[in-house]
Design a protein around this nucleic acid. Structure first.
Lengths: 228, 228
DNA sequence: TACAAACCAGACCATCTAGTCTGGAACGGC
DNA sequence: GCCGTTCCAGACTAGATGGTCTGGTTTGTA
């Protein structure tokens, strides 16, 4: 995930570098690009170096190993991901006081930029890529991903529970599971978009997700079209 | 996907071998195991050989290259996947004449064996793994995956359209997109299960999917609990 | 301005990996 | 029983890959 360079993400992208982009960041950017494009294990450090216009010496000065780069990669990715979660949730909270409407609005905001997200990320997600890497998982790198997932779950489940207090939920949906379904839809949509080489699936699947949420939460579709 | 060795899948697993498991199948099985576990590009042919208890000579007798193995792998996987789609859809069609109920029942059948599916597949899906491989995609290998996706979409969308003729759909959901959402949920749930090392997410996410379908299609939850 | 530390360039190395090659066993037809 | 074909075992190779090492430049600091 990660997607966008929101204002509260800027400090992140340009943290340490005083002037131009620092070598370490360039390496991370290059690695992220390549990892999203062909998977982490399929990208070589030489490719990362070439893409970043750097050198072997620089690489192993900043990272102890390729696995170390991987961990740094998911760390940055997950941090940006959670930041974008908070960003868009804050925007949604400006639209309405109703938690159900906020939730729907939250999904809608992603829906609107769905294609761009898929484009920017080459229809892929680092989570999906890294989760394959057993070594990295066994090396404590998975916790970063789980933390991000939990952050999403918590933020969304909170809204769902609050919404259930206002209107009865349709059927006996579990708030945590429903919250996870947002994450699940993102990840699945990435795969669909990539497999079919059609980034529009990102938007349409988020739309289906929103419609599902509206149906389950009992929210009217026209509740918050443009904060009218 | 693929999951289960249904009766109509048996011809497949034991096609050519007259007696025991043929070497080629053993190699494919080993490769599938490893690919599901650590990704295709991260598995070496030596590992495949070792896992299958075979040899270099045998491997390159049956497969022209590692990429060739990859294609054979997804071909088999996708074929079994579509077969299991048809299998469970046929079972669902025995339960009711109502397409909406059939659809819900279809999802429920997977829901029930969700954890086993995740277990058997090491919480992973070859589709997700291979979709990363750009080379294989550019080499015509992706069409196999797309074909399988389209098969799912077609079968499910057909039910949704038929269901919409009986009851009005909630909101203006697109049948194709809703059908794709089933595939999307599977893939996303795999990733969630793998990231959290918790196979139960497979079941709970399919449950959420079912509840969403019920809400959008206007089907009562008790419509077909156990074909009573 | 001196000097240590951080930073980087690129030749170099040990190992791994996909793929080849040669030799031989098993099998099927005749 | 002969022979061609399929099938398989394993040593071997050319190149890729992660990682090291030496030397040099830049930077911060006193």
């Amino acid at each position: 995930m990660v997607w966008f360079v929101t204002d509260r993400l800027v400090w992140y992208k340009s943290s340490m570098p005083p002037d131009g982009t620092k070598t370490r960041e360039r390496l991370l950017d290059a690695a992220e690009n390549l990892a999203l494009g062909k998977g982490f294990s399929a990208t070589t450090v030489d490719q990362v170096i070439a893409e970043a216009g750097s050198s072997k010496g620089a690489f192993f000065h900043h990272f102890a190993s390729k696995g170390d780069l991987g961990r740094a990669l998911v760390a940055r990715y997950a941090a940006a991901d959670v930041a974008s979660l908070e960003h868009f949730m804050a925007l949604a909270e400006d639209v309405s006081d109703d938690p159900a409407v906020q939730l729907v609005e939250f999904v809608r905001s992603f829906e609107e930029i769905g294609a761009e997200i898929a484009e920017e990320h080459q229809s892929s997600c680092l989570y999906a890529s890294f989760v394959q890497q057993r070594e990295l998982v066994e090396d404590g790198g998975a916790e970063l991903i789980v933390d991000a997932i939990v952050a999403w779950r918590r933020a969304l489940a909170e809204k769902i529970v609050a919404a259930a207090e206002l209107r009865p939920l349709a059927a006996d949906v579990d708030p945590d599971d429903l919250a996870d379904h947002v994450f699940v839809t993102f990840e699945g949509a990435f795969i669909l978009a990539r497999a079919t080489s059609d980034t529009s699936h990102m938007r349409t699947q988020l739309r289906v997700l929103r419609q599902s949420l509206e149906a389950l939460l009992g929210v009217r579709s026209e509740a918050a079209p443009e904060a009218r």
